[in-house]
């Protein structure tokens, strides 16, 4: 199987390699300001990747993936302030978020909540976080040494080296960390979807009853992929508050919740590189639109969403793949005719 997985992962390795090239080339070419901005985009791409996993492969339309992203960011920030060391804070952030998702998912999946209500529940949880944390501006709202800061949020300590808590990373170095984290998460998810677990999740997405009739406990698989997705979103959250420098309750807003869904729709469900690419594209589009006042930002995003839902319902990546496959199907006749004499010669 291992060989089979590696063979199936060839495109994944290819994109990961492109990512590596970008990681080492970008700081030499781009300005520091752009690099710092990119770090934020990378964090959001990790978030998109997590939703691409649980929605695209698990079939779970989680409308509140930002809840896990924000929870991870807050958990990291609060833990880092209290510990004075960011390395264990990252672990704490991922573990708290995954544990929270596991608890929430337990009630959703073992309660056999239907897809529509799952979306409602996850969105509601996100908005509860939003309202709750906005109201924590007083000095009495603190966890350990960390003031929650309400609407203004908390400023996040920058990452320090794992072996030396007094040497902080500069923004240009955080970029490397973020990019490496994105590539590793991408490889991990790319591997996961080709394992038995991942393939059973896809089967459950396709037909839950059939999967159960084959003897798979769909609740466990869904809970598993949901929890893993939340953990990855938390990594995105950690990167996000390092890119921005602080975390505010705005991360839990309806706008951000919807935006995550848009990235995955535009990029394409059932692919990983699609949503990641779409995140970068839309991030830069909104940045560019921010520089002008002719068109409203949200209006443009809304139009993009409508255009994609109507005209490119599968998203960019699957549409491109279909197109390439269709072209290849026409081609092989010629290829085969040429290839045959060669193989005969070899024999």
């Amino acid at each position: 199987m291992n060989n089979g997985i590696l063979r199936n992962m060839r495109p994944t390795f290819f994109y990961a390699f492109l990512g590596l090239v970008f990681m080492f080339a970008a700081p030499n070419v781009l300005q520091l300001f752009t690099i710092i901005n990119l770090t934020t985009a990378i964090a959001l791409a990790v978030l998109a990747l997590s939703l691409a996993l649980i929605w695209g492969y698990g079939g779970i339309l989680c409308f509140g993936q930002v809840a896990f992203f924000g929870l991870g960011a807050y958990a990291y920030t609060i833990a880092a302030i209290n510990f004075g060391d960011t390395t264990p804070a990252i672990l704490v952030a991922v573990m708290i978020t995954a544990a929270f998702a596991a608890a929430l998912g337990y009630f959703i999946f073992f309660g056999r909540v239907s897809d529509v209500y799952l979306g409602v529940i996850t969105l509601t949880v996100t908005l509860i976080f939003f309202s709750l944390i906005r109201r924590t501006s007083g000095p009495e709202y603190k966890i350990g040494k960390a003031l929650l800061g309400g609407f203004n949020g908390v400023s996040s300590p920058p990452l320090n080296l794992p072996w030396d808590r007094s040497s902080f990373l500069f923004p240009e170095h955080v970029f490397y960390v973020a990019m490496a984290a994105l590539i590793l998460c991408y490889l991990f998810v790319g591997w996961l979807v080709h394992t038995r677990f991942g393939r059973v999740c896809v089967a459950i997405r396709e037909n839950e009853l059939r999967a159960e009739l084959l003897g798979y406990d769909s609740r466990l698989y869904k809970l598993g992929i949901f929890t893993i997705g939340a953990g990855i979103a938390a990594i995105g959250g950690v990167l996000f508050c390092n890119g921005v420098g602080r975390i505010t309750p705005d991360v839990f807003s309806l706008y951000n919740a919807a935006l995550t869904i848009i990235w995955v729709i535009v990029g394409g469900r059932g692919t990983l590189i699609g949503p990641v690419g779409a995140t970068f594209a839309l991030f830069y589009l909104t940045s560019a639109l921010g520089g002008q006042s002719l068109l409203n930002n949200n209006l443009v995003l809304g139009v993009i969403l409508i255009v994609f839902v109507l005209l490119v319902p599968k998203g960019v990546a699957p549409t491109v793949t279909d197109w390439v496959m269709a072209r290849r199907k026409k081609a092989p006749k010629r290829v085969r005719r040429r290839a045959r004499p060669q193989t005969e010669r070899m024999e």
């Binding site: 199987m1 393939r199 059973v200 896809v202 089967a203």
Partner: peptide, 23 residues
């Protein structure tokens, strides 16, 4: 009740894989 998005091969594999290793 089948897995519409998967191929015939994959449909059968998911069933067989419940009980056996990949090979």
């Amino acid at each position: 009740n089948v897995f519409d998005g998967l191929t015939v091969d994959e449909n059968l594999w998911v069933s067989a894989r419940r009980w056996h290793d990949d090979r």
